[in-house]
């Protein structure tokens, strides 16, 4: 059992880690590098001469091979971690009599995206480097709690009786009723168009990767179990 859990998670996590990195290099990294121009002051938005305009365009990609390699490596680590939790979810749902298939894996992946990316992004949008925000520990606590209660809430909706589903919806709403930690000042380091585009690109690429993660992990889970 442990071998099946780990094997399906590692193979899926490594494969999806590579795909995630490729999608990020294509759609997210150019915006991230452009954001760093504002973080370092190489570019200034709303500069002191009163101009509200700043030049658009990102610096050259792939100039730091080590940095790009680390992005691939840490994507593999993170998605293997997420895949382990998906596999744990598969094992628990099968104990409850709900068998997992590759197609159901797609739904698990979507649920993972909602719990880990979309729900926390409602309160804490994906941030460009250099964004000034509330204390990191407070944000991490809110982020972790939101991921946990959203995952539990989705589980109750998917597998519980009707009343438990209502409870699940309340759980999902709870962190947003409490509210994410925010500052009482805007700093606007980077251009707002760039920050908005970064947030949507981050969410869009992770939606695609999470769906693939669900599909791959479930496909391997079914394969290893039958072997």
């Amino acid at each position: 059992m442990f071998k099946n859990l780990v094997a399906s998670a590692v193979f899926a996590g490594v494969a999806v880690g590579v795909i995630a990195a490729a999608l990020q290099f294509w759609l997210v990294t150019p915006l991230l590098l452009e954001g760093e121009l504002y973080e370092t002051g190489a570019r200034v938005h709303f500069s002191t001469d009163g101009s509200t305009q700043s030049e658009a365009g990102h610096p050259a990609l792939f100039t730091e091979p080590m940095r790009d390699l680390m992005t691939v490596g840490f994507n593999m680590v993170a998605f293997t971690g997420f895949a382990l939790f998906l596999a744990v979810g598969f094992a628990l749902s099968e104990r409850g009599g709900h068998m997992v298939t590759a197609r159901k894996g797609l739904i698990w992946g979507m649920a993972g995206f909602i719990a880990v990316q979309l729900a926390p992004a409602i309160g804490l949008p994906p941030e460009l480097p250099g964004t000034v925000a509330a204390d990191v520990e407070l944000r991490q606590i809110w982020w972790i709690c939101t991921v946990l209660v959203t995952a539990v809430g989705l589980g109750l909706i998917a597998f519980g009786p009707t009343l438990a589903g209502v409870g699940g919806a309340v759980l999902i709403a709870l962190p947003h009723l409490i509210g994410a930690p925010h500052l009482d000042t805007y700093f606007g380091v980077a251009a707002p168009e760039l920050a908005a585009h970064f947030a949507t690109a981050s969410l869009g690429t992770s939606a695609a990767t999470w769906v693939l993660l669900g599909l791959f992990t479930a496909t391997l889970w079914v394969k290893f179990k039958d072997a």
């Binding site: 995630a20 990020q24 990294t29 926390p120 992004a121 941030e127 990191v136 981050s202």
Partner: peptide, 20 residues
């Protein structure tokens, strides 16, 4: 939070929207 970990994981953390 160790700075070595932070620097090497930096881009992936931002792309995945971990509060880092």
């Amino acid at each position: 939070q160790a700075s070595v970990m932070h620097d090497t994981a930096h881009d992936q953390r931002h792309a995945m929207a971990f509060p880092c």
